[in-house]
Design a protein around this nucleic acid. Structure first.
Ligand code: FES
Ligand code: FES
Lengths: 142, 142
DNA sequence: TTTATTTCTGATAATTTTATCAGAAATAAG
DNA sequence: CTTATTTCTGATAAAATTATCAGAAATAAA
């Protein structure tokens, strides 16, 4: 469904969000540990997210990554930043473009699923998810 | 969503199904042309599908690939053969396993989407799709 | 100002996926 | 039986994704 990079990215952002609520600014070592992901690869991904303004970063001692207070960040924005929006817009059978006028054989069926995925990602906020995480109801690793 | 191999695989099977209805047995060259996919790669995929009995094949002159008459083949079987069933069962954030007892933060939300995808693939038959294809209502390439 | 810490950047390596190729095995048709 | 056709098999190549590494740039704290 999502690329590895995107999976790590979402997990990282959720951890950063949780820590931001506690006024902390986790660094890459802490993030990779909390999320059980390869450290340098996770760094790359966090840098990409920071460059596009999805998360914020501070260099130097006591630096790290954090989230804007009361950010309205959604899953959809993270996914689009890392994997692009082809999962939300592209043809499921790989035709150069999805179009109702020239549909592939599964167009109708997939439209529902894809629309469901899209709506879900757009309506799910990171804050909302990190809340449950903080309460210990959900987990970022085994 | 699906791998390139899986996209080519589904498109190929749909073309084979359409041609089977016309009592034809297209070969790799014809399939790759109809589906606009790289010929040798498509060959690999069709071989894999044939080996697992999802499609049938005949060597020699006038040989090619075909489908069992009145086959009840579904999309789900093709996807599982090529991409495995991780898209139907795996955790969307890449945790080693999806479980309601130890859920990732998006487990609930994704469960709906994934279940929708699964049901859709299981309930959509190749025959049903190739019918529309034969009528010229849907397309396998631009 | 100096030092320690941390993100950031660019180069590189490993792995997986995608794609190609040459030739063997099978089989229908003449 | 011979030949032409086609799938099948295994080796290989190219590209993309995933992962690592070394060092520069920034910054807070001493
Ligand atoms: S054309 Fe394939 S999903 Fe719309
Ligand atoms: S645990 Fe992640 S989707 Fe179920």
């Amino acid at each position: 469904m999502f690329s590895k990079a995107c999976e790590y990215g979402i997990r990282s952002v959720l951890f950063i969000a949780e820590q931001s609520q506690l006024d902390k600014r986790p660094n890459i070592v802490e993030i990779a540990k909390a999320v059980d992901s390869p450290e340098p690869f996770t760094a790359k991904i966090c840098q990409q997210l920071a460059r596009s303004g999805i998360i914020l970063s501070r260099k130097g001692p006591n630096g790290g990554f954090y989230l804007e207070k009361d950010s309205k960040l959604t899953l959809a924005e993270i996914v689009a930043c890392i994997d692009g929006d082809s999962i939300f817009k592209g043809c499921s059978l790989g035709l150069p473009q999805c179009s109702a006028a020239h549909p592939c054989p599964v167009h109708d069926q997939f439209n529902d699923v894809r629309e469901g995925l899209k709506k879900m990602c757009e309506n799910t906020t990171v804050t909302q998810l990190s809340e449950k995480l903080r309460k210990g109801e959900t987990f970022l690793k085994i």
